[in-house]
C-alpha cells in the first residue's frame, strides 16, 4: 500500500494538483474558516477570543502529536483522555501532600507535582507499550483496557472531587500567566511540536517509526528493533497527554478526574486523521496535525459564536471528519490510478 503512495507522486511536474496533494486542503479550509468568521462576527478576531482559541488548540495539539506518532507506527492510543485526567489529579494530590510536608518550599512542591504527573503518564505508556510490543495484544484493545483502568484510578484517588491546594505560583505564575501576550500553554505546544518535528525528521527513532508503520516485515528484516520503538511511541503519547493534564491543572487551579476523557481522546484521533495521518500507518507529520488541531478548535469556536446549538455541534464534527478522510482516500485512489 505504502509503495503506491511514494511511487504515485510524479517528480518535476509541479501542477496545482501535486501542490494540493503535498500540502493538503487543510490550510485552505483553515484560511477560509478564519476569513469567513472574521467577516461574519467581529468578536471572532477579538484578543480574548484569539487567546482562548490558541490556549485550547495548544492543549489539543500536544495530545494529538503523541497520538499521531502512535498511529504512524500502526497503533492507536485510546487511553490519552484518561491519562490527562490521571496526570491532573496525581499532580494536584502530590503538590498538596508536599505542601503539607514541606510548607513554603515552592520549588520542591512544584517539581514533585510535575514529576509525579509526568511519571503517571510514563507508567501508563509503559504498560501500553509492554502489552502491545511484548504480549502482542492489539493496540486498540490494550488502550481500551488501560483507558478504563486509568480513568478508574483517577476517580479512585479523588473520589470524583476536585483537588485543591496547589501553590499560587503554579496557578497564577504559570498556568494563567502570559509571556509576551501569549498563554504559557502556547509556548509549551510550540516546543513540543518543534521537538516532535525534529524527532520525526532527523532522529533514527522517528525514521524507524515510519518504517515500522509502513511495513513491519521490511523493518524487521532491516534490523529495526520493533518492540523498543513501539514502546517508545506509546510512552511519548502518554507523557504528552500527562503534560496536557498538568497544563490544564495549572490553568484551572485544581486537579480534576473529569479532565480529558473520551472527548479529548476522540478529538486527538480526529485531529491526527484530518491532519493526514494514515490509519494504515507509515504516513503523517506532526506539524500538519497541529494545524488540524487548530482547525478543529477554531471550528468549535466558530460554531459557538454562530450560536449553533451545542448539542448539534458534534454532528458537524462527525461529518467533517468523515469527509476529510473520504477526500484523502479519494485522492489516494486517483493517484494510484495514474
Amino acid at each position: 500500500m505504502s509503495t503506491i503512495v511514494t511511487v504515485g507522486a510524479p517528480r518535476g511536474s509541479i501542477s496545482l494538483r501535486s501542490i494540493v496533494g503535498r500540502i493538503g486542503f487543510l490550510p485552505a479550509l483553515l484560511v477560509a474558516l478564519v476569513v469567513g468568521m472574521s467577516a461574519v462576527d467581529p468578536q471572532f478576531y477579538g484578543l480574548i477570543n484569539i487567546l482562548n482559541i490558541l490556549r485550547n488548540a495548544s492543549l489539543l495539539a500536544i495530545v494529538a502529536c503523541g497520538q499521531a506518532l502512535v498511529i504512524v507506527a500502526g497503533g492507536f492510543d485510546l487511553s490519552v483522555g484518561a491519562v490527562v485526567a490521571l496526570a491532573s489529579v496525581v499532580t494536584a494530590k502530590t503538590m498538596a501532600a508536599t505542601a503539607a510536608a514541606f510548607p513554603g518550599n515552592t520549588a520542591l512542591i512544584i517539581a514533585s507535582g510535575v514529576a509525579a504527573g509526568l511519571g503517571s503518564g510514563l507508567v501508563v505508556g509503559l504498560i501500553n507499550g509492554f502489552c502491545v510490543a511484548k504480549l502482542k495484544v492489539s493496540g486498540f484493545v490494550v488502550t481500551l483496557g488501560t483507558m478504563s483502568a486509568t480513568a478508574g484510578v483517577g476517580l479512585m484517588i479523588t473520589s470524583g472531587i476536585p483537588v485543591y491546594g496547589m501553590p499560587d505560583v503554579f496557578v497564577k505564575g504559570f498556568g494563567r500567566a502570559q509571556l509576551f501576550g501569549l498563554p504559557t500553554a502556547v509556548y509549551a505546544a510550540l516546543a513540543v511540536i518543534a521537538v516532535m518535528m525534529f524527532v520525526q525528521r532527523r532522529t533514527l527513532f522517528g525514521r524507524y517509526v515510519y518504517a515500522i508503520g509502513g511495513n513491519v516485515d521490511a523493518a524487521v528484516v532491516s534490523g529495526v528493533s520493533i518492540q523498543r520503538h513501539i514502546v517508545g511511541t506509546y510512552v511519548i503519547s502518554s507523557v504528552l497527554a500527562a503534560l496536557t493534564g498538568i497544563l490544564l491543572t495549572a490553568q484551572v487551579g485544581s486537579g480534576q478526574a473529569s479532565f480529558g476523557g473520551d472527548r479529548m481522546m476522540l478529538q486527538s484521533i480526529a485531529a491526527a486523521v484530518i491532519g493526514g495521518v494514515s490509519l494504515r500507518g507509515g504516513v503523517g507529520r506532526v506539524e500538519i496535525v497541529a494545524v488540524s488541531a487548530l482547525f478543529l478548535t477554531i471550528l468549535g469556536n466558530a460554531l459557538n459564536l454562530l450560536h449553533v446549538d451545542s448539542r448539534l455541534q458534534p454532528v458537524f464534527l462527525g461529518i467533517i471528519m468523515v469527509a476529510a478522510v473520504a477526500l484523502d482516500e479519494f485522492s489516494r485512489r486517483s493517484k494510484a490510478r495514474v
Binding site: F76, L266, I269, A270, V273, L279, R280, R311, L312, Q313, P314, V315, F316, L317, G318, I319, M321, V322, V325, A326, E329, F330, R333
Partner: peptide, 20 residues
C-alpha cells in the same frame, strides 16, 4: 463505497448520532 476506515467512519457517525 468511500473506502473510509471503519474506525473513522463510525467515529464520525458516533458524533452525528450523539448530536441527533
Amino acid at each position: 463505497l468511500l473506502g473510509v476506515n471503519p474506525f473513522v467512519a463510525t467515529l464520525g457517525s458516533y458524533n452525528v448520532a450523539i448530536g441527533v
